[in-house]
Design a protein around this nucleic acid. Sequence first.
DNA 1: GCAAATAAGTCAACATGGCTGACATAAATG
DNA 2: CATTTATGTCAGCCATGTTGACTTATTTGC
Lengths: 193, 193
Amino acid sequence: MADINAENSHHRPELTSTGSEPGVEGPTAPVDPALVSFMELFYFAYRNFTGDPDAVLERYGFGRAHHRVLHFVHRNPGLKVAELLDILKITKQSLARVLKELRQKGFIAQRPGPDDLRERRLHLTLKGVRLTDKLTELQVRRIAHALKEAGGSADEVTRRFLVAMIEPHERDQVCSLVKCAEHRETDAKTGAT
Amino acid sequence: MADINAENSHHRPELTSTGSEPGVEGPTAPVDPALVSFMELFYFAYRNFTGDPDAVLERYGFGRAHHRVLHFVHRNPGLKVAELLDILKITKQSLARVLKELRQKGFIAQRPGPDDLRERRLHLTLKGVRLTDKLTELQVRRIAHALKEAGGSADEVTRRFLVAMIEPHERDQVCSLVKCAEHRETDAKTGAT
DNA sequence: GCAAATAAGTCAACATGGCTGACATAAATG
DNA sequence: CATTTATGTCAGCCATGTTGACTTATTTGC
């Protein structure tokens, strides 16, 4: 089953010749190999994280894009389209496509805004709630398990890490969206329920 | 600038009617809201993580797919195509496309295998090394900064978390690929170099 | 030594989910 | 009433994933 690099040792290491001036490496700081492996773990962890829901979504003819919409609408009922666009950072046209499908298949409903009738406030239907909850449960389960395996302080610490990975100018938006106690270093460890 | 949910309070909460039997919620376990926010942070963190290299890659006419190939070939010189496929978990045809572009633009070179001449062992050219190192530096910098901000034990703890997020049957492959001290709970904290 | 298996490349066609530009409609606002 | 705003929509492009079928070169097993 092609075990990738059990045999790494026998790979001929060197750079290739194509433009051979060797050693010209350029102005790149020497990179900590421990952090490189960290990058890789982040990649593989995220791939597994998204893998669970992907499998379910497929059965509905949906993709990851639909999942994101379902999720954020679930968490922020009555969300305006413009707000959703600002969260997802995609274009109106991209969103329109998945939104239309979710609407037509009865997972999302829109109601005109209470004050401004131009707005289409987004809500999940019961069907939408059921699906979204199922997806959430899958991902939450994986996270809960990983946190347990990572040890006691993992929730708090990893949370701070994830927040710190976010660009400062984006951080406030994300933190209020996420209802972020973890920004100001308070709790976030109390296994709420 | 559409601040998402400064105004969350005024969103009309409820589920929508479309299929209204209310309370039928289905067999979904009650979900810990702290973990839901964790999911969201993971999403935003990963988006930021990939954002840095994306900007650079664009200037070369490359995308994230090219980045992944460059990265894993850099880390595993002499990698066989079949091994790369097994790492990326995409199809031969998908890989072929980006591989061809990387070859044509002189970022990757192939040499026949030393024992088996059918193999095309993959190597970065100098150009490839330069680009890849630049991308790596961006991501490593973000991670290093986030780990610092997250506090002392963050590297060790978060690493364990990320590993634990990976499906067990994939874990061994990933860990040997990643040169994973972090699997057996030894070091990995020694800031090498 | 030859048939079969293997490593890799390729062609064609298709889906998803990004993107741009242009334009339509309805409601709010000055 | 003119303009701006919130949303939707049409048409088309690009990147990156998919499947299925087929070629070529090489290795391997009988």
